[in-house]
Structures are given as structure tokens and as C-alpha cells.
């Protein structure tokens, strides 16, 4: 998607912060420092670690 955004004058920065074997709670405790406090969109895939209840794709900011 970077070239698409670049054509529209926006610099797209994407970070892959996926962790193996950890759930949401472990990372949520320090999410601001881990994922950055200036991110515009946080996608969260919980299918493997929280499959009993919640499977979310984009998390509300």
C-alpha cells in the first residue's frame, strides 16, 4: 500500500508487532510504549490467543 499512499502525498509507515505465544493482556500493559504513541491505526489479530470470545481486526483507538 505504500506506493498508493505515496501517490496521494502520504507517507505510509507500517509496523509488524506480532508476538508469538503472547495474548493481548501482556502487551496491552505497555501498549503506548511498545507500539508508539503516534500511531494512526492499530490492527489486532487475536484469533489464536483469544479465540474463545473476541476476534477483532482493527482495534478502536
Amino acid at each position: 500500500m505504500e506506493p498508493v499512499f505515496a501517490r496521494l502525498g502520504v507517507k505510509l509507515v507500517s509496523h509488524n508487532f506480532g508476538y508469538g505465544g503472547l495474548g493481548t493482556a501482556q502487551n496491552a500493559l505497555a501498549a503506548g510504549d511498545l507500539y508508539g504513541k503516534e500511531i494512526d491505526m492499530l490492527l489486532w489479530d487475536t484469533q489464536m490467543t483469544e479465540k474463545c470470545v473476541a476476534i477483532s481486526f482493527p482495534s478502536p483507538l
Partner: peptide, 19 residues
């Protein structure tokens, strides 16, 4: 971001398969 020619930052969290 479009009007001000800013940076759009995406972050993905989750499990190892997502990574």
C-alpha cells in the same frame, strides 16, 4: 494526512501467525 501531507502509521499486534 492527505491534506497536510503527513505520515500515516499503521501497527499490527497479535499472535505469531499474524506476524
Amino acid at each position: 494526512a492527505l491534506i497536510t501531507e503527513d505520515t500515516m502509521t499503521l501497527a499490527m499486534g497479535g499472535h505469531s501467525a499474524a506476524a
